[in-house]
Amino acid sequence: MVNFETVVFYLFAAILLGSALRVITARNPVHAALYLVLAFFTASAIWLLLRAEFLAVTLVLVYVGAVMVLFLFVVMMLDVNLERLRQGFWQYLPLGLAVGALMAAEMAAVLYTRWSGLAARPRALAPDYSNTKELGRLIYTDYAYAFELAAVILLVAIVAAIALTLRRRKDSRSQDPSQQVKARRADRVRLVSMPADKDG
């Protein structure tokens, strides 16, 4: 039966597929990145239809609000030469197709076992049911160990990323704000009392 929710789902699904297609076909890398933003945003709307409000909002908050901003930023700074990108397209095509087919097969393997379950819509929940609260409870009780482990791995990754890029150039000069704040008038100005010069 066609109802409003189904129409909305197909609308968002069409936008999602269209924008995902444009991510890989757009000539301009900035356009591609923006289509990816649109794809994330639409995916979050579809998650909202599944009543996964926390995941949906977090997708926008993390991927659209932070990751893609930095990504877009990097893409804008790049000087992409389209001609050079096109070189070797046919040479890399078999490898790309193989990787794509493998990924599709893996996703199918994951989804196939639950395929029948996906057809059923999530059951209607009580109005005071909070998806966020439920997730929080699960993460900090049943899955506390896995969650802490993931957090530690992320922390290590952050430290590693910073350690890899942190280098101090010897010829660059920088200011130490705490030193600047500590400066007082007496350190900078010396008032000298001199006798007036009468002869001019």
Binding site: E53, F54, F73, M76, N131, T132
Partner: peptide
Amino acid sequence: INAGLLYVMALTSMAVYGVII
């Protein structure tokens, strides 16, 4: 909505796109 605060944070984090683009 239950996740009102998250919603506000998610939307305000999108404001930067206008400026960058």
